[in-house]
């Protein structure tokens, strides 16, 4: 059985570096996308076990990416962990309403991210 594959969609390169490092250490394969359009394109073409999705992405924002994923029959079950620097209740409600599997507010602890990803992606590879 292969490693579970995680996509990190985040435009801040330094955060991507740290997230990739801790998820790889936790036993996942990691791929990255720097904007919303690229993220959507990646999950449509490749099998992932979970998507770690920032909301404030350039171009297509995280909410739009999440909506597109949930309206795509093939992707509807993909676990999506939403990251946001805005901790407001409105963002959280919006993320939950459009089908986020988990919601993490920045600044997060590494352990919190690993725990959510492990719970949702399990140890198995995606479709």
């Amino acid at each position: 059985m292969g490693k579970a594959r995680i996509l990190i969609a985040e435009d801040e390169q330094n955060i991507v570096e740290s997230l990739s490092f801790i998820l790889k250490r936790a036993g996942f394969d990691v791929d990255t996308a720097a904007d919303g359009t690229e993220a959507l394109d990646r999950v449509r073409r490749l099998p992932f076990s979970a998507l770690v999705l920032d909301i404030m992405l350039p171009g297509m924002n995280g909410f739009d990416v999440l909506r597109a994923i949930r309206s795509d029959q093939n992707l509807a079950a993909l676990p999506v962990i939403v990251l946001t620097a805005k901790g407001q209740a409105g963002d959280r409600r919006m993320a939950e309403a459009i089908g986020a599997s988990a919601f993490i507010t920045k600044p997060f602890s590494n352990a919190e991210v690993v725990a959510h990803v492990s719970r949702l992606a399990g140890g198995v590879a995606g479709r």
Binding site: N14, K106, S109
Partner: peptide, 14 residues
């Protein structure tokens, strides 16, 4: 600021 703090925290924890 939140983005910078997030990055610092993640790297520091590592």
């Amino acid at each position: 600021m939140l983005t910078n703090v997030t990055s610092i925290r993640a790297a520091a924890e590592i």
